[in-house]
Write a protein that binds this DNA or RNA. Structure first.
Lengths: 140, 140
DNA sequence: TTGCGTGCAAAGGTTTTGCATGGCA
DNA sequence: TGCCATGCAAAACCTTTGCACGCAA
């Protein structure tokens, strides 16, 4: 029995091992499904959805619902020991579809301001900034 | 022929008239569909999707894809004359689901910073800040 | 008369649920 | 032995597309 308070299974181990090996990478359920199949370790899509959802609840993985009609995007964000490490925001390019990590000292300030003046506690893991990225702007 | 360069129809007129009458209100295609039916002026859902999508392109209406599996949220944001009026950001409460308008002097600064230092041109109409609102925090 | 607008029905595609089976403890 | 986990199949659901008909200009 692991920290999840549930059974420890082969599928869960394989999934965790894999996502831990690609920190900072964005992936969908389909991506994982294909990867596992190629490795000869197929895991059903249903199982992947269930595990990933639970990992999101535990703060191990972040989930980004970029658009309807396209698969949800996940990312291993670690923090398995609840060390409260720095949260990472994302920027999504509306043109090329890229999901970009945003490391910026101004964001914590914004979070503090929203909290103090607007009573709103922002969630870094779910908030995504939409816009147009540098590459796409230059191409116009 | 109106400014859209296309035909002017009864359905379009009714839709525009209604959304203009509820500025700042969030609504879904289903909401409009029901409202029109109750008024005895039914408009097909397909037509609503098509008109609203076009209005989004024209900047008349904003669209928020809050989550998959829930209907998209629209809002009349005016600016019919392209006067470039102030854009409005939104905060979405993850607990109660409320979509809240955010008027904050810090946001334009953030936009400028992202543009200057990260090459990213943020889109106010699609960017939504996720988190927990004041009311829900107090209830805990 | 031309061609866009309309809306029903059906498709499309992701995610969830039902349920029987299998595996962990 | 008792439950949880698994995964196939089917459901659920919003949104888009096909297509025939209607209506604006």
């Amino acid at each position: 029995m692991n920290s999840r308070g549930k059974y420890k299974t082969k599928q869960y181990d394989e999934l965790l091992k894999y996502v831990r090996s690609i920190p900072g990478t964005h992936f969908t359920v389909g991506d994982i499904h294909n990867h596992m199949k190629e490795q000869g370790k197929s895991i059903g899509a249903t199982t992947l959805y269930r595990h990933l959802d639970r990992m999101v609840d535990e703060g191990l993985v972040s989930k980004f619902n970029i658009d309807p009609r396209t698969p949800a995007c996940y990312e291993y964000t670690g923090n398995e020991d609840n060390t409260g490490e720095e949260a990472c925001y994302h920027m999504k390019c509306e043109v090329c579809g890229k999901l970009i990590h945003l490391h910026c000292e101004m964001i914590p300030e914004l979070g503090e301001h929203l909290f103090q003046h607007h009573g709103f506690k922002i969630d870094p893991l779910r908030t995504v900034f939409y816009g147009i990225c540098e590459d796409c702007r230059e191409e116009e």
